[in-house]
Amino acid sequence: MRHLLSAADLDRDQALTILETAAQMHEVQHREVKKLPALRGRTVVNLFFEDSTRTRSSFEIAGKWLSADVINISAKGSSVSKGESLRDTVTTVAAMGIDGMVIRHHASGAPAQVADWIDAVVVNAGDGTHEHPTQALLDAYSISRRIGDLAGKHVVIAGDLTHSRVVRSNLLLLKTLGAQVTLVAPPTLMPSGVAAWSEAAGFATTYDFDAVLPDADAVMMLRVQKERMSGGYFPTPREYTVGYGLTRQRLKLLSPNAVIAHPGPMNRGLEITADAADEARSLILDQVSAGVAVRMSVLYHLLGGAQ
């Protein structure tokens, strides 16, 4: 594994190794000196063409805690706003002698393209509506910390499937880890051609959220991406909440041992109510703290050893 562009880059052993190392990295978070020398002398650039709080800051902290030198470049305030092309931007940055590039871009496939252009290790931190593999890793990490090995577990993913890159990565990784996955969305937000896809990849889809909740070991709520909601996907936010929000009524359908995940940022009151977000079964804050540990593990596995 040279780059991490897709959750499909990981086989089961590699995924489990990354999750196991993440557990060791997690422990560093509680130390007084939060620093490991593993990536001393390595330089990692976070190149973000889209807004991000938690992904960018957790990659930055992860790199710094591993003693790498971390530089953040965002599209605003860089030469990108002067009209420089993606290729020129990344090759310019790479020419400074960096070892790793963490990239988020609004175009699906951009990180894979960048990996062809430069010698450094490339980590996909979210590309368009395609993938977000480190998010899938931290979701799997947080869920399995709470409910154990994911093999055979039933994970329900509900929300805006059409625009979500998180769901694609999660689906690939959860299948690799042996979980059973059901996707839930209103018909307008179910990706077209999902039937053929689900048959090939071995997961179920449904429009009926209530029917699948009692059997779920974990429920992952996806954010309704208001910035991409110009297409009239549902009549009103209220209607979405009634059909597909994790409401107080739906919480009662959920098994007491099931856990609730949300990749954030949340639209409280839209896809998830405060009752669900703040209750004991919710993993949402665990996911944020796991983000740093999982990204440390990913950077260590990609940059720590012999190249």
Binding site: E20, E27, A38, Y300, H301, G305
Partner: peptide, 19 residues
Amino acid sequence: VTMYRDDLRLQPIRAAAPT
């Protein structure tokens, strides 16, 4: 001590063990 080894980058990656 995996993260502290001086031969870390001379060898294939190894998983960390618990501390």
